[in-house]
Design a binder for these strands. Structure first.
Lengths: 101, 101
DNA sequence: CTATATTTGTCAATAGTTGACAACTGGGCA
DNA sequence: TGCCCAGTTGTCAACTATTGACAAATATAG
């Protein structure tokens, strides 16, 4: 599982000298769970990012971007055609954006 | 569900005047299933792409690229930060590639 | 050794996916 | 009109995967 996200939130948590057991309850999970999330062993839900960014006083967009990048990476990580696929996907994204939808 | 892949295989099938009921059994599925796949209503498994490219005499890499692009698109389609995330993911991909793994 | 922080392993409950089938729609044509 | 035929839609039980929760193990510091 890709994990720039987990690495980053661990970094943020440690910078603020917060313990897993302090942060976990705020996210309504237990300590082992948060540990696993930070190490990318368990997936993070999109909705949890908002709470995380508040608790860790982090920029939500930064975290969201990392989280999305992880999802994307998971899709293509073992693929020879990763770069080609990314290009095609990017084209599609920009096309849809232009069409207001 | 993103569906450049489905659109393309439908196109290929129609170009060759093949019917759903002719192609579906070759892929070990029934007609409704293939119909749904072509319209993006059901996901396609990675392993099915090889068989599909053979049955439809298509370039496997082309189909694989479209399929991957669909997966990527599904991840970011409703995201404001889609482009940023794509950039980050691309960086990661190229980094890992450089590190031989 | 003890206390505290984190990690690992396990598992039942739940949620999601799958393949299969029946039923329906729409078009063509006798 | 009625009957095919190609494709579509809806449903559902069986299966698979994910989840949250907990106990136990490990690691680190005094």
């Amino acid at each position: 599982m890709a994990n720039q996200f987990g690495v980053r939130i661990r970094q943020l948590r440690e910078q603020q000298n917060l313990l897993l057991r302090q942060v976990a309850p705020l996210l309504k999970m237990d300590t082992p769970m948060l540990s696993k999330i930070e190490r990318g062993e368990r997936p993070v839900k999109r909705e949890q990012i908002t709470v995380l960014s508040e608790v860790l006083k982090a920029d939500k967009n930064e975290l969201l971007t990392l989280w999305l990048a992880d999802q994307i990476y998971d899709v293509v990580k073992d693929e020879k055609l990763a770069n080609e696929a990314m290009q095609v996907a990017e084209k599609t994204i920009n096309l849809k954006k232009r069409n207001k939808k």
